[in-house]
Design a protein around this nucleic acid. Sequence first.
RNA 1: GACUCAGUAGCUCAGCUGGUAGAGCACAUCCCUUUUAAGGAUGGGGUCCUGAGUUCGAACCUCAGCUGAGUCACCA
Length: 576
Amino acid sequence: MSHLELSEQEQVRRESLKELIDLGINPYPAEEYPVTHYANDILANFNEEKSEEFAEVCLAGRIMTRRIMGSASFAQIKDSTGRIQIYLRRDDLCPEDDKTFYNKVFKRLLDIGDIIGVKGDVFKTKTGEISVHVSSLTLLSKSIRPLPIVKEKDGKIYDAFTDPEQRYRQRYVDLIVNDNAKETFVKRSRIINAMRSFFNEKGYLEVETPILQPIPGGAAARPFITHHNTLDIPLYLRIANELYLKRLIVGGFDGVYEFAKDFRNEGMDRTHNPEFTVMEIYVAYKDYKWMMSFTEEMMERVVLELHGKTKVEVDGKEIDFKAPFKRISMIDAIKEHTGIDVSGMKREELIDVCNTLGIETDESMGKGKLIDEIFGEKCEHHYIQPTFITDYPVEMSPLCKKHRDNPELTERFELMVNGQEIANAYTELNDPIDQHQRFVEQMRLSEKGDDEAMFIDDDFVRSLEYGMPPTSGMGIGIDRFVMLMTNQNSIQEVLFFPQMRPIKKREADSDEKFLKLGIAQEWITVLRDLGYKKIDELSGLNHNKLHQQLCGYNKKNRLNLVNPPKEEVAKWISEQ
RNA sequence: GACUCAGUAGCUCAGCUGGUAGAGCACAUCCCUUUUAAGGAUGGGGUCCUGAGUUCGAACCUCAGCUGAGUCACCA
């Protein structure tokens, strides 16, 4: 990168880097740094009676603020646990005659953003702030790009780094400067850990199944496709792992679960990211009623571990995860919110119902889809408190066992919280003949134009033919669950690196191409800086104007270059 | 995919009716031994997202594009 393309502050920092090296200071040392303490531990445990315990501490972190005075300075460093103030005096850092380390290295060559290690003793300042009195300081990593400066007083934040685009694209900056940015992600990890230990305590086995699948099964969604060179076959990134986990139940495991990244090639918005995390669990010899109790027990436990109580504040609403949760069938839910009993209705009758309710319909929609539409439009958003919606139409659930009392329905539930689906579970279909027919039915739908119908997975059917025990399975959308638990209303806030459109870079031509036109090396940089990254961008330019631009730039930046004659500039333009 | 809003210094943002581009923090220089959102003084820093148009003159008006956010559509 040319020097000219850097901002003034970046240039200054690169100069500082050079000066540090000239002084014999390695700005990127390799050695381990023997940290003994963390900022928050010191702040939490230090008091003046115990000061001998803190007479020799060693900690490392990033410089976040500096207040430099003549021969004494304060700074704040931030480590993984928090921020702590450090106090530096010239004569402590430089007991000999040579004061370079304080006067030059600390005051001039170090910057906000640098990572340093300090040794010293802990004390309380006049104003009562617990601080580290530094006796020695080591540069651990020099920062050559300035950070946004965020300040805070009495909980009020000044100049917060808020631009979502920058926060997501450069999450590392968000995490450095916004002190609460880590919170959501720490909670995410704790939620997953709580679930994992709950499952492990029950004796279920955490497993891993293929992400690259020859048939993208287990759900209905458009997949990402890739190609395996050696096998010369298409492979799909999984849209679900359900069919593989069930194969393991066939294989004889009683309970298996997986925290899985799934991938769906569909739209992106506040609640959808192309890759997302799902936890799926399958338990043999259970049904969906057992799974409801299991799910509410797990939810209650996770919420309790995370918040210390079962109530959670979401969008200003209080949601209580105290088990048991309300249970209602989809038909009853529709009755409750529309007054219409859709049970036993024919397709034409359901279309009439949709028309009276103002719900759009189309040719490809079958009975199940119509009922699901009515529920989605008229009922779903009403379920704020955790509610199990049960007994979905058979057409919507090709992997789910038919209801024991009604063949038009399935033994399925979804857990709705805050008007959103959080979990989805079945009494799994283990009848291989029925499963095969359901797949064939899906094929028919797909031929009718439903591009979300499922693919047939013959090997999965084969596994059922060997016999799968009665089983119940459940999946939880982890990202949405975390959103709920952390009161975030965008999936991007619970993913470290949400998918973003890549920034288009204008490609620049090589130096050689410019040199061929007879343009001297020093002017190539200037041209690029003026925005002419490719030689063909010069074509058709007014040579007088370009000449003026070049000379103006030369003068303004005090480059002291010899301006090229106008004729030469004209030649560049005409020859390219 | 449709509509609405936004893009100005490293960061957060002003910028009136179209008339020389501003502030705070950050940065640089100098002065200061306990400061705390920011000690004092002085100074440097801009492709006003990109391109075209209207105009004597565009950060501002018009059109097109790029990027993001929101709403809707889509997504069991």
